[in-house]
Design a protein around this nucleic acid. Structure first.
Lengths: 225, 225
DNA sequence: TCAAAAGTGTTCAGGGTACACCCATGG
DNA sequence: CCATGGGTGTACCCTGAACACTTTTGA
């Protein structure tokens, strides 16, 4: 049975992570400076290789936590990129993921010594390889997820105001929303529940804090904003 | 620069194709009998390995045309499947695709000597590996595509009646549709245009034949049925 | 007292859904 | 002449969009 496999080629398998976060109220990407050829010294998506003993998802998780120190980052596969010459150095098939990092974790975002920086989506440097295509596909997928699944909460603190939530949806969708209509829609999403807490940091009056209720969502896994 | 790569593992990279077609008016999958261990002799998705000199998509195309003799089959990536033990024989990361085969090509579907057969979606044999997960994801992706992109025409002859089109959408969506509402919706999809031809094979009266107009779609790439 | 963000209802139009009958033709 | 699939229009409801003012309170 092993000669069946051994007559075929083995390829390097990589992962590349499109890490989304909010910075200065703008949807941003976390990039690193490449420390290897090709493209050494240039800004790039965070990537790595899949080892024989780990799954592709595990490799992506590892890459994310090596960079940020965080575990349990929300992550979703974007797809495999397998053009022959996508990496000029070697034949590498890469699986792209997108990840969302919460404002909660602002401090611990990037580990010491990692040469990484957030770039607003409209001020990205020119990227090499097929990274621009990965980012485009990741964005599309992410926007779709946002409308149909409770994904937004991965970019927000555990508790958030409705203004924060709306502002997030406006940022992601790239359009301003009507406050009353937005709140009406939120009101009939059962898994978004109000807490007893008031946030006084952003306004004199104070704003009710809400949270995403996992249990309610599991009972009724529909979501549409 | 090469030692940067060489310190990492190389893995077998495979492709698996979820081939959809219509048979007896039922959505069906084309499966083959595996000719190698593991799982030799069992029904399985059609698969193959990605060679060093071909892209992942090229490998999938090759596998499809080896099986069917057809080129230019509509094909879409489903995603990478990379669990460590997904293939008990060796470490293989596989990229799943779904493909759609038209009634047009009914005759040449399967090349001589290929041990392949269509199975209705509800009468699939028990499949090994992670093939059931691949099929589930492929179905979801395919259904979404059907509603938002002109994908249906890959499963239909070049010219088709509105009844055929409706029946296809009913099969894919798994629900019956109202004839008048369906036709109303079709009527305001500019890229579905009526031809001068009448199909007399399915009814005494005869039914107008329509076609998908590529040019019109390019001008106005919106699609919603 | 005023600035700044939070909070709150109603109206209207357009799209989607439900629904039933006549038409054309070959056998 | 009749069986079979092809083709057509309307009424209603409900969702989605537009729209402006009051409340609270810290400075």
């Amino acid at each position: 049975m092993s000669e069946f496999y051994s007559q075929h080629d083995r390829l390097y398998v990589g992962v590349d992570c499109v890490i989304f976060g909010l910075h200065n109220g703008e949807l941003s990407l976390l990039l690193t400076k490449r420390r290897f050829e090709p493209e050494m010294g240039k800004w790039s998506l965070i990537g790595g290789f899949v080892g024989r003993g780990e799954s592709v998802e595990e490799a992506a998780s590892r890459v994310l936590s090596d960079l940020t120190g965080l575990n349990q980052i929300y992550m979703e596969q974007v797809g495999a990129f397998g053009a022959v010459d996508r990496d000029p150095g070697e034949r590498v098939v890469s699986v792209a993921f997108f990840a969302l990092i919460s404002l909660d974790d602002l401090d611990s975002e990037v580990k010491e010594g990692m040469d990484a920086r957030w770039f607003g989506l409209n001020e990205l440097p020119r990227l090499g390889f097929d990274h621009p295509a990965m980012i485009e596909k990741a964005l599309k997928k992410m926007r779709r997820k946002f409308a149909t699944e409770p994904t937004a909460f991965n970019l927000l603190p555990k508790m958030f105001t409705l203004s924060q939530l709306q502002s997030l949806y406006e940022t992601i969708g790239g359009e301003v929303l009507d406050k009353r209509n937005f709140r009406k829609r939120v009101a009939d999403v059962p898994c978004i529940v109000s807490t007893e807490y008031i946030d006084k940091t952003t306004s004199r009056r104070g704003a009710r804090l809400y949270k995403f209720d996992e249990e309610t969502y599991k009972l009724n896994p529909h979501f549409k904003i």
